[in-house]
Amino acid sequence: MSFKSEFNKGIINENPAFRMLLGMCPTLAISLAISNGIGMGLAATFVLVGSNVIISALRKVTPGRIRIPIFIVVIATFVTTVDLIMAAFLPDLHEVLGIFIPLIVVNCIIFARAEAFASQRGIIDSLADGLGMGIGWTLALCGLSAIRELLGTGTLLAIPDFGFAGIRIFSQGLAAVMAILPPGGFITLGLLIGLLNLITNRRKTKRQQV
């Protein structure tokens, strides 16, 4: 398959958050503001691309029996890199994402791509796959965060690291704080996936009628 199709599949058809339902913990935990979504998504994209490329490059010299520890070390190296870079340059974001940055190590998306894709395919394909999956996840996080940030605080695009308070859409008094509390995360994601299923089902029945 070409670079483009490997890249595209992660964004829509095999979107990790909405279709494959991988990496739920950080998806639910950090989707409080769009800036968190972008930060977390890009951090994971960096780790995905890096680990996919290295694991793919090492695939011929990796003994099958100890591949899991090797994957873990490669992934953990990239996660530590991202953790230290973020602590140095984006301290506020690092504070908010907190424990979920080191926890990228055990994110199922990265593991699944390493095991199912990168350990069997060439470097260019793995790079495209990592980039597509990473960006697909980032978009999903941003979508979920946008809904929760708007409903929970009434603003959009607040970026504490740059001292930007965000665009106020409606007043604080109308905001439903529940959306940025833990229950809001579960319920918003549940309804969002339900909506996507509804759209897919509608399309399918329409196609059958035609």
Binding site: G185, F186, I187, L189, G190, L191, G194, N197
Partner: peptide, 8 residues
């Protein structure tokens, strides 16, 4: 989806 809503 319903599992997520229940968890919520």
């Amino acid at each position: 989806p319903i599992a997520l809503i229940t968890a919520g």
